[in-house]
Design a protein around this nucleic acid. Structure first.
Length: 478
RNA sequence: GCCCCCAUCGACUAGAGGCCUAGGUCACCACUCUUUCAAGGUGGUAGCGCCGGUUCGAUUCCGGCUGGGGGCGCCA
């Protein structure tokens, strides 16, 4: 039975890179009918914050990465939390201590730095006398527990990278229990991974160099290490680690600017993994079907928001107008429209969305294009009409207005007939009429087809807007 | 400083010795479609880091160099 885990530390929002790690774990678990575990690694009491834990969980859910297990609380699955498992770590730590595989170290950071020229700790406390220990104790020092690293070469067998050897003396005795009796990452991960019967550790390459430490702990505890798969890292455009200065790097930020969960899911899967047949758009099911660790790329990948944007536009097209409308509501509210106003215009919004759907890249694109249809006051920026000439277009509009008023069935084909007839009679190019008309009606130089647009607006609103526009353009002209 | 990983268009990648005149996608450019903005269609620019081997033949195998990334914390 395949069992994998995603183990974020709640020290910030869910990062794009972490989300990708979570995704790969998830895909691997689902592909193999395995179990996906979420474990919150909150042993850094200084930096951990439950606020971040909550946001990470929300974002994982949003991405559709659901986990399958949790501590026994009776309710829906909670994640495992390391701070709830301290007794467990202490138990194993004591065992290593009593077996002589770990020892107490009393050194201060300053002392270590002073002694060691390069590299880290010099294993000073491995063999100190009882007298020294009493002295340290009497000074009130709190010891840490260090792992006694055996002198042996460690071989890491990695699914993605193959076999990697680490020299015998490349690792110093490292801390496994801090002086506050909380385990360090290296220790807690190992204990949890075998306690949770994790079969495959899929994580970022930044942990590759730490893996020998982990393997050594597994061995000291008489456990067989899980299989490892170290994924390439996600970098920013300047090839350095993706970080805040690269702009939006959290899942949350993309979510809030109107990216679709499925698009993000799909895009992230393509970062460091690809199918053999050039396919780029995958449903979640297809991704689960096709995914394999062996097909993962070894080299680091640069996160490209432009391709994400394209991917998102593809998913926007796939959604129905109804869905897009529904999803847009928060963005319309954010753009300043009252909830009641949005509800009142719901049908109209949906119609516009239907017409404009393939033009949206993200949900945040919706409000602008929907605006003229849910608000009364149009703010005409006459500059935009400059190339047609304000006086000329005003003349055309005042001439066509009576014709529009006369249309009985105010629906697109009737409107089209009248307007095209008008163009012909006046010997005008269609563009000379269509563009000013669209502008007068919506205040925009872009939008749906003119006739569809007018049908949606209705005769009353259309007439009123043209009249209002004429009034404004005359005034500006003088 | 020591250790580890990586190396194909600007980006994501296909390629697992001859199928490569290096393929696809994003971005970019041009053309096209068109009542606008888009979308779409067609085409284009652009890449195997360098030096040695191995081989009849290297993008593909080996070594070195260079470059990039990561690790060496009482952070995870």
């Amino acid at each position: 039975m395949v069992r994998v885990r995603f183990a974020p530390s709640p020290t910030g929002y869910l990062h794009i890179g972490n989300a990708r790690t979570a995704l790969f774990n998830y895909l691997f678990a689902r592909k193999n009918n395995g179990v996906f575990v979420l474990r919150i690694e909150n042993t850094d009491v200084e930096r951990s914050n439950s606020r971040f834990e909550e946001s990470i969980i929300e974002d994982l859910k949003w991405l559709g990465l659901s986990w399958d297990e949790g501590p026994d609380t009776g309710g829906p699955y909670q994640p495992y939390r390391q701070m709830d498992r301290l007794n467990l770590y202490r138990e194993y730590a004591n065992r290593l201590l009593s077996e002589g595989k770990a020892y107490r170290c009393w050194c201060t950071r300053e002392e270590i730095e002073k002694r060691a020229k390069t590299g880290g700790y010099d294993n000073y406390c491995r063999n100190i006398s009882d007298a020294q220990i009493s002295k340290f104790q009497s000074e009130g020092r709190k010891p840490v527990l260090r792992f006694k690293v055996p002198e042996k070469e460690v071989i890491v067998k990695d699914i993605i990278r193959g076999t990697i050897r680490f020299e015998a003396d490349s690792i110093n005795d490292f801390v496994i229990m801090k002086s506050n009796e909380i385990p360090t990452f290296h220790f807690a991960v190992v204990i949890d991974d075998f306690e949770m019967k994790i079969t495959h550790v899929i994580r970022g390459e930044d942990h590759l160099s730490n893996t020998p430490k982990h393997i050594l702990i597994f061995e000291a505890l008489g456990q067989t290490p899980p299989q490892f798969a170290h994924m390439s890292m996600t970098l920013g455009p300047d090839r350095t680690r993706l970080s805040k200065r690269h702009g939006a790097t959290s899942v949350r930020q993309y979510r809030e600017s109107g990216f679709l969960s499925n698009a993000m899911f799909n895009y992230l899967a393509l970062l460091g993994w690809s199918s053999k047949d050039n396919q780029e758009i995958f449903s979640k099911q297809q991704l689960i079907q096709e995914f394999s660790l062996e097909a993962c790329n070894k080299s680091n990948a640069i996160f490209d928001p432009a391709k994400l944007l394209w991917m998102n536009s593809q998913y926007m097209k796939m959604k129905s107008a109804k869905e897009i409308t529904e999803l847009s509501i928060p963005f319309l509210e954010k753009a300043g429209y009252e909830k009641s106003n949005i509800e009142r215009h719901r049908q109209i919004i949906e119609k516009i969305v239907e017409l404009e759907k393939e033009k949206f890249r993200i949900l945040e694109d919706v409000p602008e294009r929907v605006a003229p249809y849910i608000t009364e006051d149009i703010d005409w920026n006459l500059q935009l009409l400059q190339k047609f000439g304000i006086p000329e277009t005003s003349k055309i509009l005042s001439e066509i207005l009576p014709e529009i008023k006369k249309i009985e069935q105010f629906e697109r084909s009737a409107i089209e007939n009248i307007i095209r007839k008008f163009c012909k009679e006046k010997n005008l190019k269609t563009g000379e009429v269509f563009h000013p008309l669209r502008f007068a009606l919506t205040g925009m130089t872009k939008g749906p087809g003119l006739f569809e647009l007018m049908e949606i607006l209705g005769r009353d609103v259309s007439v009123r807007r043209i009249e209002k526009f004429l009034k404004k353009s005359m005034k500006d002209d003088n």
